Structure formats: structure tokens, C-alpha cells
Simulated assay, not measured.
Amino acid sequence: MTSATAIELRSFNDLFAVRGDLLDVYAEVRAPLLHLANYAVSSFGERLDRHGAEDGFQAVLAYEDGHPVGYAYGNRIEDGDRYWQRMDPEPSERYTTCATVALKEIGVRPAWRGLGVARSVHDAFLASRCEPYVTLMVNPAAGGGKVHALYRSWGYEDLGHSQPSPASPRLAVMIRPTA
């Protein structure tokens, strides 16, 4: 590891091209939680395959010396998408009547945290998006609340809550303009 300036960002619209790299980084990022069903690599792989087949899929990976060190990925969601249907309270039509991009996952290997890699992959992911809003879900307890606070510092606001699956914790749904 050197610094964030040595990081190369690559964008992909084909999951097949980067599935292995995403799984490798995820396994290290979530290592302390992998014993929980929702966080198991197999569960993530199933979600990843579903998301990769949805409209507007995009992944941005950060590489250092050809080694994947971080990622962000997501896809477009429309009015009526299960993303919105599971949310409490029901989201405003302001967000649902137009396409929105859902940032489904963001992760950085521990040795590369604190170098701006997460922000770099986040911003690169949004740079080519045409949707007016980006939404994400975060476990408010992650990092003792630090992850939630980080997203707030990036301009996200709390919109509601969601529990995407019975094995998932209750997550905070956040949103902000893409630009």
C-alpha cells in the first residue's frame, strides 16, 4: 500500500468482468461479520448477481498495482422498485417519480482506509450517472455510527428505514442529489 494517489479507478457495466474482484474485496471488508447469514460471501454473491442483472448496473473498482482495494456498485431503480416498497415511511414522490441510482455497496480493504479511496470510488461511480438522486442504505451501528456520519458528511440525508431481508439489520435509507 502506498497512497490514494497511486490508485487506479476502473468502471465496469458488466458484472462478469469484475465479479471475482468484488467478492475478494468484500470478503476482507466484511471479515468480522461473515459468520452472520446476511453478510456471508455466498449471500453477498447472490445479491451481487441479482444487482448485476438489473438495469443501469455499474461498478467502480479501485486498484493499486493491479490489486483490487475498494469498490462501489449500484444500479438504477424506478418507481415501484422493491427498494422503495420496503422503505418506512413511504418515500416522497419527489424521489420515486424519476429514476434514481441506488448505491448498493461500497467497501475498502482495511489497509487502504483513511486514504480517500471510498470517496474516490463513490465520486467516480456518480460521475457518469444521469439520475438526479442517489440513495444508499447503511447500518446505523456500523463503525459505532461513524459510517452513517461519513455519509452525512458527503451530503446524504436520512430518508427512512428498510429491512431488505429477514436476515438483514434495520438499515437507514439515505439520499442526496447526484451532482
Rank of each mutant, 00 (worst) to 15 (best):
T2W: 07
T2K: 12
T2I: 08
S3V: 08
A4T: 13
A4K: 04
T5Q: 15
A6M: 07
I7G: 04
I7W: 11
L9C: 09
D14Y: 07
L15R: 02
R19S: 00
L23E: 08
V25F: 00
E28S: 04
V29A: 05
R30H: 11
R30L: 05
H35Q: 14
L36R: 15
Y39F: 15
A40Q: 12
S42Q: 09
S42R: 05
F44V: 12
F44E: 08
G45F: 01
E46Q: 06
E46K: 07
D49G: 09
R50T: 14
H51K: 06
A53H: 08
A53G: 08
A53M: 05
D55M: 10
F57N: 11
L61I: 09
L61C: 10
A62R: 01
Y63R: 01
Y63I: 00
D65M: 03
G66A: 07
G66D: 06
V69G: 11
Y73M: 14
D79V: 04
G80R: 00
E90W: 00
E90Y: 01
P91D: 07
S92T: 07
E93M: 08
V101G: 03
A102M: 10
A102L: 06
A102R: 15
K104T: 06
V108T: 12
P110W: 04
P110L: 03
W112F: 10
L115K: 10
L115T: 10
R119G: 14
S120N: 10
D123M: 04
A124V: 04
F125E: 06
L126W: 00
S128C: 09
R129E: 07
C130I: 10
E131D: 14
P132F: 02
P132C: 06
Y133T: 12
T135E: 01
T135I: 15
G143Q: 12
G143V: 09
K146F: 05
V147W: 08
A149Y: 00
L150V: 04
L150I: 03
Y151T: 04
S153R: 14
D158I: 02
S165I: 00
P166W: 02
M174N: 00
M174S: 01
I175Y: 01
P177G: 14
A179F: 10
A179H: 12
